[in-house]
Write a protein that binds this DNA or RNA. Structure first.
Lengths: 211, 211
DNA sequence: GCTACATTGTGCATGCGCGCGCAATCACAG
DNA sequence: CTGTGATTGCGCGCGCATGCACAATGTAGC
C-alpha cells in the first residue's frame, strides 16, 4: 500500500465526482463501472483500476453505492473542506473569474483580489476590495489561502507566480499564456483556450471550407 | 512516413509555437533544443523527437532557426489561415469569451453568437448580434465556421453540442462541466477550472492551515 | 581546406499506463 | 441454505511514450 499513484489517475477522479454528483441528484443509489464509463468515455476496467488504488468501494454483483463512493472521492481529493483562493489580475479575465459561479458550489472561495496595475487598486469587484500586489505577502498572513489564480498578462505572470509561491501558495491555476516555473512542492495547472484550439486545428485542417 | 502521430505530441506543438513566438519577438535567430526545453519544462530529447515526426528542421551544431521552425509549426498545425468560430451561450461566461482578447492575435475569430435563452436574443454584444439557437443550422450555411465554443449550462450542453455537430462544426471548445459525446470525426476539448483545482487539492491536502 | 566542437536526428531500451480476462465475492431467488 | 447470475478487484501482458546514447552532420575557427 501507499504506493505511488499516477497523476493521470488523480486527474480522472474529479470527472468521476462530477458524474456521481449528477447521479446522486437524480436519486440513484448504485451504479456499475460500465454505466459510469459509458457516460464518461472511459473503459469500465479503467474506472475499477483507478478506484482500486484507494480501496475496495464496490460490491460484486451490484456495483458502487453512489453516495458512499462520492464521499470517499471527496475524502481522497481533499474536497470535504472549503478552500480559499486569492486572485491576481483584475482585468477583463480576472473580473470574469470573480463573477464565475462555478467555484463556490464546489467549495472554492476567492477571498482576496490583487492587481499589478495601480489603477484598479481600491476598486470593489464582486464584494472584494482590489489591493496592490505589493501588499500580497502581508495580506496572505491573514488570508492563509493555499490556492492562487493568475490572470495577469504573460509579461508579468512569472513574477506574480513567484510572489504567490513565496507567500505560501501551494497550488496555482494559471490563465496566463506562459510555461511557468515553480518549485517541485508547488502544483500548477494551465488553462489556455488558444492551445486547445491550436491542437484541434491540426486534425481538421484538411476538411475544406473557407474561413 | 505518414505514420500515426501521437496526440500528446500534437498537444505539445502549440507550446513550442508560443515559446518560439516570444523568441522571435526578441529578435533571436536560432535556438537549440536544450534552451527551448528549459523554458518549457520539457526534455531536449522530447522536443527533437516530436519535431522529427514532421521533418528535419534543425542544423547540427547550431540548433533551430526560430523563424523557419515557427513557419513549419504553423503549417503543421494549420494555423496559417484564419479560423472562424461560433459561440453558443451568451451568459456571464460567454460574454467574457466574446471580450477575451487572446483569440484574435492567433487567428481565431468569433463570427456568430447564439443563445438558448430568448431573453438575450437580439442584443448586441461586442459587435455581434445574438441570435436564437433555433436559427443556428441555417446561419451556419453562411458562416461556414468549423469551430464551436460552448458556454451554456451543463443541462443544455449536450443538446447544443449535437446541434453544432449537425451544423458541420468539426471541433468544439467546451466550457460546460460535462463529458460530452461526439462522433469520432469531431474533436472536443474541455475547459473546466474546477476539475483542475480538484486534482491539485489532492496533492496539497495534508499541508495544514485553516481555510 | 582541414580540424575541433556542438547539436541534431534516431535506434533502442526502459517504464508505465491501459485494458483483457478471470477468479473472488456478493445479492437474491427459491 | 444452496444455486445462479452479475460485477468487482486485480494479475498479467501488450503497446506506446519517454529519454538515453551515439552516430551523423553542419559550423566555425585557424
Amino acid at each position: 500500500m501507499a504506493l505511488e499513484i499516477p497523476e493521470v489517475v488523480i486527474d480522472r477522479l474529479p470527472i468521476y465526482v462530477r458524474a456521481l454528483t449528477v447521479l446522486e441528484r437524480q436519486g440513484r443509489d448504485v451504479v456499475n463501472s460500465q454505466e459510469l464509463g459509458g457516460k464518461l468515455g472511459v473503459t469500465p476496467a479503467q474506472i475499477r483500476k483507478d478506484l482500486s488504488y484507494f480501496g475496495r468501494f464496490g460490491k460484486q454483483g451490484r456495483g458502487y453505492n453512489v453516495k458512499r463512493l462520492l464521499e470517499e472521492l471527496h475524502q481522497i481529493l481533499g474536497i470535504t473542506r472549503e478552500w480559499s483562493m486569492v486572485l491576481v489580475g483584475v482585468g477583463q479575465l480576472g473580473r470574469a473569474i470573480l463573477g464565475y459561479g462555478g467555484f463556490a458550489p464546489q467549495g472554492f472561495r476567492i477571498v482576496g483580489a490583487f492587481d499589478v496595475d495601480s489603477a484598479a487598486v481600491g476598486e470593489r469587484v464582486d464584494g472584494l476590495e482590489v489591493k496592490s500586489i505589493d501588499v500580497l505577502p502581508e495580506e496572505m498572513r491573514q488570508l492563509r489561502a493555499q490556492l492562487g489564480i493568475v490572470a495577469v498578462p504573460a509579461a508579468s505572470a512569472q513574477q506574480v507566480i513567484d510572489m504567490l509561491v513565496e507567500s505560501g501558495v501551494k497550488a496555482i491555476l494559471n490563465y496566463a499564456p506562459i510555461a511557468a516555473h515553480v518549485p517541485p512542492d508547488v502544483r500548477i495547472k494551465d488553462i489556455d483556450p488558444v492551445l486547445a484550439l491550436q491542437s484541434m486545428t491540426f486534425y481538421i485542417k484538411e476538411s475544406g471550407a473557407a474561413p
